[in-house]
Write a protein that binds this DNA or RNA. Structure first.
Lengths: 225, 225
DNA sequence: GGATGTGAACGACTTCACAGCG
DNA sequence: CGCTGTGAAGTCGTTCACATCC
């Protein structure tokens, strides 16, 4: 689903957090924010994991990587946990992104409130279609992708969002990287690769549809017991 | 990212394919279709995995679960592999889906060509917004979500796609399940749970953004060596 | 020689069991 | 007593090494 580009040589032993646990930390964070909004001040590991289908032990193991935040017999302080997870994930600051490919999906992302709620801002738009260039969407002018190298650096986005056809994805990714972007969110149905120092998350809707088809397919054949 | 709903009791020992390998099979399939289009007839495990960042050994292990399709010294027949993967994933037939939530993302999915290309058809639309009910999008009328129970069963969709707010996701999921749907693709930022026999894939864009933020955040601090 | 298939070693992640603290 | 933190055990997935076959 996501990778770091090149296969890494070093086993990365210093990295405390496993890939899987980072995903769960996101889930915990959301759950904790819900609980916080409900006025809950202290939580147990069981309460956090319950609605998420995660065991209490697993929650404690994950939270242990943030430091010693729990109080035996009491639980965890919700606000402390929220702050610690935000800081660990690196979302206690603002991220700015360039979006390339102002099609249906690109526009949907532009209008998606969830991005702003998490301090992700889209600060530049690009498209190759001459009919789209010059248009304004959500207060941003669409620039031609060919001018990415000149337009983007002064804006200084640290992320790139790819909502382009698969055939264009790697080329656009390379241009974004050349323009200084440090992370890529790729929605094209292709595996985008990047050099060390640039992170990539491939979303790949097609793959997830096929995962679902497989699960349903399997469940159906299991029913024939 | 995706789960089967309730935590399962039985370790499901009969299931040959691991979750991770199913995802890779999707990637192989896409790569093989590219190669097929280029007129390639035989491939080696190395060639399939190369552009995907997967080792040859891993490819062979994954393909082994499809049966004995390889020929030592020669490789695999591209067409055979494509057919075998399609059949294993359960995408050698048509899947029909109801889409609930005709907002920006819902509309983007409706127009997404990749669905049709993979034999996934959206056959019914629902929304709670009275302003949207009755509208026609891509040839389909938007029905009120409240009438899901009456409208959907005669149409007979086997999947449900949720592009609704997180607060509504579980309720809508329950209604879809009651209407006979066997699989759910959930785009809402929440974990949707389903009883045994119904499969769920949670896409969760927020989580993937946070994954990316974390990776970039980590890469930045590693640079201080 | 060139490539597959696969047991065995290895490593990563999860669950268990329980010590320890409030 | 309730709940955390964590070594140990167990499970799952990946990589290695090599026997095997065209």
């Amino acid at each position: 689903m996501s990778n770091h580009g090149e296969p890494r040589k070093r086993p990365e032993t210093d990295l405390r957090l496993s890939r899987a646990s980072v995903g769960r930390l996101s889930l915990y964070l959301r759950r904790l924010e819900e609980l916080h909004a409900e006025g809950v001040g202290k939580v147990s590991s069981g309460l956090v994991g319950e609605a998420l289908g995660v065991t209490d032990t697993q929650v404690r193991k994950d939270l242990a990587s943030l430091g010693r935040l729990g109080h035996p017999g009491i639980g965890y302080d919700v606000s402390d946990l929220i702050a610690a997870i935000r800081s660990t994930l690196g979302i206690d600051r603002e991220w700015s992104a360039a979006l390339v490919g102002v099609g249906n999906l690109g526009r949907a992302l532009l209008r998606y409130q969830g991005l702003a709620a998490r301090n992700f801002r889209i600060v530049a738009l690009f498209d190759t279609d001459p009919a789209k260039v010059g248009q304004v969407a959500e207060g941003l002018v669409v620039h031609p992708t060919s001018q990415l190298g000149e337009v983007l650096p002064p804006v200084g986005a640290n992320l790139g969002i790819l909502t382009v056809p698969a055939s264009a994805a790697q080329n656009v990714a390379d241009e974004l990287i050349a323009a200084g972007v440090k992370g890529l969110l790729n929605f094209a149905p292709s595996v985008v690769r990047a050099p060390a120092g640039v992170s990539v998350v491939n979303v790949d809707l097609t793959m997830q549809l096929e995962q679902l088809a497989f699960l349903v397919h399997m469940a159906a054949s299991e029913r024939l017991d």
